[in-house]
Design a protein around this nucleic acid. Structure first.
Length: 211
DNA sequence: ACGCTGATGAAG
DNA sequence: TTCATCAGCGTT
């Protein structure tokens, strides 16, 4: 079942950890693209120098200042999208970045959504898909999972109670000892905040991003 | 280890 | 209006 709004309206570090093992669902052209969340990062408030809100309200980051349970999506490096889920009370800018998922369903569609590079071999011609491991490079990074699920700026500000994008609880049990905490990726510019242990991922999961 | 890529926001 | 910067990725 879909997570209720109140799931997101709380401490961002708790939301980031509680989202591990939850199921991200994207409805795309009538089909469900589904994956288990295996890696997240927290970005919390104006004092967090890595958070887009650290320099105040702008046109780009305004969704983060709004209600919890909405999607904050932005373009990075000119070519990729990143999906964040807004947390905390209205007016307090914070969000959880979804960094990686483990594909569960709609994998054929995800494969088609990926831009096939010229050098990548065609894996499907010789063997049946069911006998092959899922290619982890499909969704093991924030830009890649958005590409595979057709998540783009059209969904910025979209509520997760809607019909296009939501997160479900399927009662997957996550043990505390299987949640690894590390510093966040790609924020060396963030000074005193750059080593905050605000990245969380599932231990021994193949679909966690390669650093 | 590097080039790609274009929106963003700060400076002026 | 210009300009440096960037929550990444793919190829070397």
């Amino acid at each position: 079942m879909k997570l209720p709004r109140k799931f997101y309206k709380k401490n961002t570090l708790k939301v980031a950890q509680d989202l591990l093992g939850k199921i991200l669902v994207r409805k795309y052209r009538g089909k469900k693209l589904v994956g288990k969340i295996v890696e997240t990062e927290a970005y919390i408030g104006k004092d967090d120098l890595a958070c887009h809100a650290s320099r105040g309200l702008t046109k780009r980051n305004r969704v983060m200042f709004g209600q919890a349970g909405f999607a904050y999506i932005y373009i990075i490096y000119g070519m990729y999208y990143c999906l964040n889920i807004v947390t905390e009370k209205e007016g307090f800018p914070a969000a959880v970045l979804i960094r990686a998922i483990e594909p569960i369903a709609g994998i054929d569609v995800m494969q088609k959504l990926r831009v096939k590079s010229l050098n990548s071999p065609d894996r499907d011609t010789k063997f049946k898909k069911r006998h092959l491991p899922i290619d982890k490079s499909l969704t093991n990074g924030p830009g890649k999972l958005c590409r595979a699920m057709s998540i783009n700026k059209n969904l910025n500000g979209e509520g997760l109670a809607g019909e296009k994008l939501w997160i479900e609880d399927r009662s997957i049990k996550i043990l505390k000892k299987d949640v690894i905490k590390t510093k966040r990726v790609g924020i060396d510019y963030a000074g005193r905040c750059k080593n905050y242990p605000w990245r969380f991922y599932l231990k021994n999961n193949n679909f966690v991003s390669a650093i």
